[in-house]
Amino acid sequence: MTDKTILEVQNFDVDYGYGDAAVRAVSDVSFTLGASKVLGVAGESGSGKSTLVYGLTRLLREPGVIVGGEVKFHLDGEGEFDILSASEEEIRKIRWSHISIVLQSALSALNPLRRIGREFDEVLRVHDANLSKEQRRERSEELLALVGLRPDRLRRFPHELSGGQRQRIMIAMALALRPELVIMDEPTTALDVVTQREIVSELAELRRQLGFAMIFITHDLSLLVELADDIMVMYAGQIVERAPAKELHDAPRHPYTLGLMNSFPPLHGERTELEGIPGSPPDLKALPTGCPFSPRCAFAMDKCRQERPPLVLEVGTEHSVACWLHDSSYQGAVPVELSKRLAKNSGGAQ
């Protein structure tokens, strides 16, 4: 796998509403994604993680508006594609053939009046007029086989399939045109845990085979740790922490990341008591001054309530965090839960 970058996002801002009524849902987000890499995006509901990816792909619905930033997609051999300045027609050609998306609920993502086969056929035909009907059908069956479904599923309507089958169909469809980037918006949230596990391991396997990059959105950090190369944690529309998955898991630096981590039972390892995060996600219309997480943060200091911490890359690491506790100006002791340390049970990171 190469170190090539396929997606580059600079100072990306998204608002909901216009003028005085506007609310900043994604604020000053910058990141890059390498080819064949998996970037996990985690955060509570309303943290802006979905808004971010819908913004990046220009699928944002009213009243969402992209107000600033740059999004560059690197096409193989064709150079840079500026997503935000592209015309509707240009972006239409990029969609699905280069960037595809899988939504949370496969039942509502499939047209209820159409057989599965017709949905496959349509997307193949629109992007490649040269394929014959027979070729399109073969390709559809091939794709179903990829996710372990029998070809006769093509004859079915969405309501005739189980939740897991529908989500597999969505994944197969997302891979139909061999895109370089697949965006997964909580693809397993609506499924039971057993199916969830199956799908996640299938996804990992498919990625090994086909080598596409993935942005995987979820609020389940423990899931990301297994699947993602890097994890980005969002709060109130901002990135509060970004690090390689293992490192983030073993040594979270932001109090919010720690809170998220303690909200889910680990998939492996001993059982611990779940803690959760006190309070509720912030009201974007009335963000507190300073760090938006400060009202819910157990470690908040005076400075946190006055100044917003910038996202800073720690020297000599790939770990960025936006927290005054880790700022060079901070003189006190970093709480032990958030300090640089070796992992509890696996001695991997640092």
């Binding site: 619905r61 239409r92 053939s97 998306i101 939504l103 499939l110 047209n111 349509e122």
Partner: peptide, 26 residues
Amino acid sequence: ISEDFVLMAVAKGLPRRKVMWHAARN
């Protein structure tokens, strides 16, 4: 139009006419 499958039709890069048809037929 606010249903997910219409959003998917856009995401799939279908021409506007086809997206409209997905919605109108339902």
